[in-house]
Design a protein around this nucleic acid. Structure first.
Lengths: 196, 196
DNA sequence: AGTCCTTCTTAAAGGTTGTAAGCAACTGAT
DNA sequence: ATCAGTTGCTTACAACCTTTAAGAAGGACT
């Protein structure tokens, strides 16, 4: 038989494309083998098992996302940077839902550290450079930003906003306005109850 | 053979418990049948297929979450309400990770409407009663709050915050402070770039 | 050509979902 | 109390997926 030229890299790439088309959970060794015109067992020469494949796709997605975000961030600061980063994040997730789902995979500590996950935190920190936040608050803000971006995109994609007529685009923009506002005026200490 | 007394309700309940123990994705018809001491095929008398089972667990989780949130909200307003709701949400997710994962299932429009999903929006709106937001902004704020809660809990549970020493508890509280602050002072129109 | 490593196939075991046929148990009527 | 009907469960089976093992074929290098 002529060799199909399968490599771990091509498998990962094809798995990512397949994930965007049919969903990350539906990417199987069998389906991937079919796409390459080989038998399922052939893939085990290049990939340890399906979990290994999933982790490779996750790393690919994290790297791609980090690159888009870095590009979006270049030469911007303050709210410009915030909006550009957030839009790049959301655009990637919507364009590559399978990859984005992969990026949410639980990675063990070692894997996560040497993957692009750390770069994300650094970039989110870069956004905050335009706002003036002392150190523990900076980490809190990074976590809040990441949470809001991920949460919004995640709920939007799973249809959580479809029950209300309000434009999802508009809400996204107003959410970014709100984040900008709160970053410019980060609460100093735990306040009491609101009094309007 | 003596009958095992399987019903759709008991199956759903057991599936939810199993999901919390071994993960929602690992709840299989086979595993559930094993837990009931019956053969897998027996479950198909009570449940259409595995997707049907998953949807039932999702609805259960949404109903439980709504109930906890409603209890937390009772008799509170303003920041008290915000914090109580958010903590109830997060506590449920951490105590019942499998159920919480189920609640994130994509539900078709019909299913979502008659499930407790709508109640969540209403409750989040109830939180906002203490803050004074005009109508389109209210929806935007609801979406932002839900996004932040879900995003934070989701990232926290998938280990996204483990790479930084800062206390996850502290960040959560500061995030709630920030949300309270931005709700009290919701930006009126899309502002320009930040100027510090 | 011969050797060796790698890639791919075949074969097979074990797990999963789901359907169909049949038997066993409970129900309610006579 | 027995008999029919319904329901719940089992067995049997088809189809699919994952993974391992053994062997054949491709390509490189001597």
């Amino acid at each position: 038989m002529a060799r199909a030229g399968v490599t771990a890299e091509r498998l990962t790439q094809a798995a990512a494309e397949l994930a965007d088309e049919i969903g990350f959970q539906n990417v199987t060794i069998s389906a991937l083998a079919r796409a390459f015109g080989v038998k399922p067992a052939a893939l085990y020469s290049h990939v340890k098992d399906i979990q290994d494949l999933r982790i490779r796709v996750a790393k690919l997605a994290l790297a791609e996302l980090a690159e888009r975000a870095a590009t979006a961030l270049a030469g911007r600061s303050g709210k410009d940077a915030l909006v550009a980063f957030a839009n790049a994040y959301r655009a990637y997730a919507k364009k590559h839902p399978g990859r984005y789902a992969a990026a949410q995979l639980e990675l063990d500590y070692e894997t996560a550290v040497d993957s692009a996950a750390a770069r994300h935190s650094e970039m989110t920190r870069a956004i905050l450079r335009g706002y003036d936040l002392p150190d523990p608050a900076q980490t809190d803000a990074v976590r809040m930003l990441h949470s809001t971006f991920h949460g919004y995109v995640s709920l939007e994609m799973s249809g959580g906003f479809r029950h209300t007529p309000r434009s999802v685009e508009e809400s996204w923009e107003r959410t970014l306005d709100a984040l900008d506002a709160v970053l410019r005026n980060w609460p100093h200490q735990s306040g009491g109850a609101s009094d309007g």
